[in-house]
Write a protein that binds this DNA or RNA. Structure first.
Lengths: 189, 189
DNA sequence: TCTTTTTGTTGCCAAATGGCAACCGTTATT
DNA sequence: AATAACGGTTGCCATTTGGCAACAAAAAGA
């Protein structure tokens, strides 16, 4: 639980009593590789925090191809935020790419925190906005540079991810086929 | 001013007294085509709301090429939010693509609204998060589909924009050269 | 109006990427 | 151990895109 509290403290202050409340509302969840934290066609019911492992968020394009939107690895919140908040059916899959250990909050417990912890809303707002900023920044990079540059900056931004995630997923994140990515890797060596 | 108030009411309730305060803190700003609302290398000092015209947000990639991040047209907030909030030097240019009429708030006036208007923070948080969601969604579309599809969905999402914005800007938004975009347009006809 | 500048188009060719099939190596499964 | 499943690589070729130069059209200025 310690990692979660440290993460939250980035965005605001919390005293011992408050952190105790937070941890009391959280439970541990283990996901096997390939398991789903939340699925398209359903309403997301949990907020998660990745203690160990990698989650991939993806959807399908109009041709039935998978698009990896982003990855969430250790010490990050994983949540289909928009649909979780609004109780909407999602069109995204949140899937464990490796075996994962998560800390999760049910929707009810999560909402109780807004009433219980002063400034909880501010902390979460900051965390969410930061996450949006990061994703957006990365996405913007993906439309400019060529595929080689995109892969290189992927390696820079996620140095530990390349070895843990199948290349096909990285390829779909970068917007190239797995064949192209394979050739790019060959040329880099 | 009416457009601004309507815009804000999407995200929360405001009574007459509150809307009066808001409008009292705003001023009108006209920007000529090509003029800058805010520039890279400077700290953004204003929040704007586009009454008339189109603003383009862009930056430079490592090769000196322009990347158009997004466009803001009528009835949208235009602000380099991240850097405005944190008082950081921006690396983006916010430029008028057409003659523009804006409603603007100085940083000081904007911050006074947080102290004066109940739930102002909640309204702005919602507005900002919605904006992030939209940008992120569009960016994700840009890494999957091919260039033709991307242009077609650009036309769908921004039907009025294609005629008002130089193609070179649209091309850099879509992640293709202006030459490619020109050929794509030719093939569509 | 005439000129200049900006914006958009096109031909040519090179480079990058996609699509498919085949193949290889590793990991799971039985 | 044998088999199957998965992940990754490579060759072949078609298609797309980029880069450049020249040109055309439209808009802005004088």
């Amino acid at each position: 639980m310690n990692e979660l509290i440290e993460y939250l403290l980035q965005f605001g202050n919390l005293n011992k009593q408050q952190t105790d409340i937070i941890t009391s509302k959280a439970t541990e969840l283990k996901l096997q590789k390939g398991g789903y934290f939340s699925e398209a066609g359903k309403i997301p019911k949990q907020v998660g925090f990745v203690v160990k492992g990698v989650i991939r968020i993806y959807c399908y394009d109009n041709n039935g191809g998978e698009i990896t939107k982003y990855f969430v690895d250790e010490n990050r919140l994983v949540v289909d935020y928009e649909n979780f908040e609004a109780n909407l059916v999602s069109s995204d899959y949140l899937q464990a790419v490796t075996d994962c250990k998560l800390i999760v909050f049910s929707k009810q417990n999560w909402e109780e925190l807004y009433h219980t912890i002063t400034d909880w809303d501010k902390i979460i707002t900051k965390a969410v906005q930061k996450a949006y900023q990061i994703h957006l920044e990365r996405r913007t990079a993906l439309v400019s540079e060529d595929a080689v540059t995109r892969y290189l900056s992927f390696l820079e931004k996620f140095p530990t991810l390349a070895n843990r995630v199948p290349q096909a997923y990285i390829a779909s994140y970068l917007g190239v086929t797995r064949f192209s990515l394979s050739r790019i890797r060959k040329n880099i060596r």
